[in-house]
Write a protein that binds this DNA or RNA. Sequence first.
RNA 1: GAGGGUAUAGCUCAGCUGGCAGAGCGCUACGUUGACAUCGUAGAGGUCAUUGGUUCAAGUCCAAUUAUCCUCACCA
Length: 882
Amino acid sequence: MTGSLEKNYEPQAFENRIYNHWVERNHFRAEVNPEKKPYCIVLPPPNITGELHMGHALDHTLQDVLIRWKRMQGFETLWQPGTDHASIATEVKVVESMREEGLTKLDVGREDFLKRAWRWKDEYGGKIVEQMKKLGDSCDWSRERFTMDEGLSNAVTEVFIKLYEKGLIYRGNRIINWCPECKTSLSDAEVEHEEQIGHFWHINYPIKDSDEVLEIATTRPETMLGDTGVAVHPGDDRYKHLVGKTAILPLVNRELPIVADDYVDPEFGTGAVKITPSHDPNDFEVGERHNLPQINVMNDDATINENGGRYVGMTRYEARKAIVNDLEREGFIHKIVSHSHNVGHCYRCDTAVEPLTSDQWFVKMEPLAKPAIEAVKDNRVKFVPERFSKTYIHWLENIRDWCISRQLWWGHRIPAYYCNNCGHIIVQREEPTVCEKCGGNGFKQDEDVLDTWFSSALWPFSTLGWPENTEELEYFYPTDVLVTGYDIIFFWVVRMVFSALEFMGDIPFEYVFIHGLVRDAEGRKMSKSLGNGIDPLEVIDEYGADALRFTLATGNSPGNDMRFHMERLEASRNFANKLWNATRFVLMNLDIDYIDKNSVQKEFTLADKWIISRLNKVVKEVTENMDKFELGLAVQKLYDFIWGEYCDWYIELVKPRLYGEDDDKKRVAQYTLTYVLENILKLLHPFMPFITEELWQNLPTVQGSVIVAQWPEHKEDEIYTVAEKNMGLIMDAIKNIRNIRAEMNVVPSRKAKLIILTTGKNVAKIISENEEYFRTLASVSEIELVKNKDKIPKDAVSAVIGGAELFLPLEELIDFEKEIERLEKEKSKLESEIKRVVGKLSNEGFVSKAPAKLVDEEKQKQMKYEEMLTHVLERLDSLKNR
RNA sequence: GAGGGUAUAGCUCAGCUGGCAGAGCGCUACGUUGACAUCGUAGAGGUCAUUGGUUCAAGUCCAAUUAUCCUCACCA
């Protein structure tokens, strides 16, 4: 009837089996169930190009902990899974695979390219999902979605059209970030700024019809090919006389109007700025204010185009070199100084981004940002930790319009059609038949697709069926928590909030639970290029998913980065092994499968009451920690309780009863042992789902699966305050005995005798009633309680606890000097404690203002320490005068 | 330029609403006691970055300083 376990914890032996068990029994499945309260988390959809990395492992562990916990608490829990089409990343992969065949995108054309992309997705896109299962993710796989499936694509089109009709999406020629490698535009969020040391070239621009020159300073001389003006500050006396005049662009000989604009900082550089509206965001604005023409001098691969005269065809860096050379030769360079500045790079391929003007689609952000800011400011959406709300608000308050069109094929194609006849734009679901403006009937759809993040922004409601009014949407929305890293706040969290507010009229989630990055042991970011990544799947193979999850959940506080150490993984695995063996011990000593609580309750021993009471407190504390998203604290408490109290003490304490002849006593021990273990397995299950399930199913006293067991509740009637206190006293005494033995190098002998001199009746009673604990845990065979010092042999080592003095008489001569030394140490320790307590109590302020309970505790301590000191002093005296 | 994080044992980090500094690993000394050597017992090791302030009481709250790491930002 009782199962038997292997001696060692071997997760490989059961993790897959347990996962299948859950899936087969539909334990991850969420239904619309009005009888229950819903709890929903949407999984941040991993890219179909992705492989599970440590960042996912952390992110998913936190979500799975929350989901499993809430499931056990009786909520109808939905962890909504899915994947993201990852427009750029996937397109790059498909282009790469075509390159092996010697083909390019243009060779195969749009339609064939998309076929290939879907094929790629079918082949590789599910990989990460399989990896997630290894980690134990309890997602409802029957509801898995993909950002480009029919329903989600429909949602994207709906959103685009609605925003367009509302005037919140527009097409315009604006300056955007261009990646010359990916050959597409990027949003501001997709550009990463890196500090670079470059040069500041001071170039003399001659003034027309004058001998004067205007010295400008630039970090990017190649863009001068697109200069259409020069600007100075209106209040700058040095240049006032030049405003309105014309400068001549060196090498190109274009005439440039000199304008005055507040944007120019007279203190910086020379106070005169060349204006290149097509290749600099600021210049673009200056250009708009002064009606300067835009001259784009670059191709989509950042080589110089036909507007660049003799520099045509060069890369921007070649052009820079050539231009600087030419300027030097012709005497236009005044000086060159070194200068550090920020250069934007593509977040996908790290190529330096080129700002340039282009026709693109934009989302007008201001009207959308406002309610999103409000939602966080008035606490409808709450960040954990709270400080990230600042980051969020600050970003939204300074946001610029969002460039959403991408010059790619893999993604949601923009539902905009251009009339072949008049160029009129019609935005709608299907291709129009007749132009509403000119009556023409030929149309061409916009070639571009949408930013990947445009579809992920809808994830919390599109996955639940929106724009259809589904019962899932009705029941699970708004979702409860979003779990993600701080690096994704701008890309995703922000956009989900404003999209949800706009289209659902409600927040997408109540809490945003933010975690940090998983770094390597040296604190570096894990990255493919550094090759320092630790593969979670390899870790799972070797140590088990539970050990990995435990490691990630422990010692990690919200919002902070963590370093990944293999040593910690080992410690987690050892903990699993400990639990495994504790359960093995229980099973080995369990010869029945049901014990009626009522039949044993009256027979609880001190140890039973103590562990039950402790369990109860742990239940309360752990649940409170979970409620506050303090998962690391919760799991730490479980670790301490399981290892430090249940295993180290309780299991040792029950052994005599288990091995004894008295069946009634045995039953009580068995009951308590299993009762506490069952609760341990439940409490630990969200963190270590596999091992707890495996052990649970080996326990004959329980049915079903722990994944759906009821989360333990705190019970007031299972708090035994006196038992905790008395057990504490006994534990203290036992630790003291062990301590003096270790320090005096006394190996316990079988017939060791313990003499206890008690001063308080109560203490004597507690000790005599629980003598057996001393036998088992302090290795003494006989205990003698005395009230008179005379009975104490001279050759004994001693320890004092509150209310009693413990003596271990020794058969062989002890080292008196060593014992004196030890007691002296004890004495000074006690003296300093007494000094501290007395100091505190003689402080008028403390006694009058501190809580009475605290003052009382201090008084108790004083009495206890003083009594202990007296004993130590007496003992010292007798040793010295022996 | 703005905002933020971090600073606690040799190492990596916990420490919630102020009330005798904790864990893991490492280290030292013991230990073949019928769950576990992936273990047990005991121990050493901290001016909680610095300086002020609030308080009866500060690792914890406030201010400043130093170091370090992020994020954002148009200074050509």
